[in-house]
């Protein structure tokens, strides 16, 4: 196939031969060292700006350091980051979940275990007696959030599954998962994103009405 080469690749390649100056090692060596030294001096004399995102760290006196002293300093995850699950509560504190098993079905890692129960005298008939997520099995794909027809499970906690010292501790039950801001009306938490450069408060229930939005 030909998409219109001006010259043969070979001709252009031969220009790539090192010149004598480059063959003497020293010039390119010194240039390379100068690049690294520039980083060194900038970082030595600058102060570290750990509160803004890497890309926004500019200005006089700000050094180029991109890493942070984890865990004393933590970088907030962007809005919409798929973090630790939470079971969304209703305003009265009970889970929104109606134990429809959609999330457990959609889960590729089969990490969700649900046992359904019935309320006696409620408009809402079903609720999960047990709702457990094995965070060691979870692959954080977000399919459960997408599959939920009740907006009852979200991954907007802004944190990740914590480190545990034994495997059973990684199985999060209903009490552990239930938390965050309560939600009365379903909203599309998967596709709605808070605009960037603002940190969405944990479990915020603002907006979230439409998808594909610009």
């Amino acid at each position: 196939m030909d998409h219109g080469h001006a010259e043969s690749p070979r001709a252009a390649q031969d220009e790539q031969e090192l010149t004598l100056g480059e063959k003497l090692f020293l010039r390119e060596t010194i240039k390379g060292m100068a690049i690294v030294a520039r980083h060194f001096w900038k970082n030595l004399f600058g102060f570290r700006d750990n509160t803004t995102e890497v890309l926004d760290r500019k200005g006089t006196g700000v050094n180029l350091v991109t890493t942070i002293n984890y865990p004393e300093e933590q970088k907030p995850y962007p809005p919409g980051y798929r973090g630790m699950h939470r079971l969304v509560p209703r305003v009265d504190g009970r889970p929104r979940c109606v134990a429809c098993y959609m999330c457990a079905t959609a889960c590729p890692a089969q990490c969700i275990y649900i046992e359904a129960g019935e309320y006696d005298d409620q408009a809402i008939e079903k609720y999960p007696v047990r709702f457990e997520i094995d965070e060691l099995r979870c692959i954080v794909c977000g399919f459960c959030v997408e599959a939920c027809p009740k907006d009852a499970i979200r991954m907007d906690t802004g944190t990740h599954a914590p480190a545990v010292l034994s495997r059973p501790l990684a199985v999060f039950d209903k009490e552990a998962l239930l938390g965050g801001a309560p939600v009365e009306l379903s909203s599309d938490s998967m596709t709605y994103r808070a605009p960037l450069k603002t940190v969405a408060p944990m479990g915020s229930n603002e907006g979230g009405k439409k998808m594909g939005g610009h």
């Binding site: 890497v54 919409g80 692959i139 977000g142 994103r193 960037l196």
Partner: peptide, 27 residues
Amino acid sequence: DRVAELTGARMTTSWTRIGGVATDAPI
């Protein structure tokens, strides 16, 4: 970081869907 803002994860994106993509570019 940009990928995480778009897809919700840095590496395990699982972002496309049959007939489209899962999430739009945030504002």
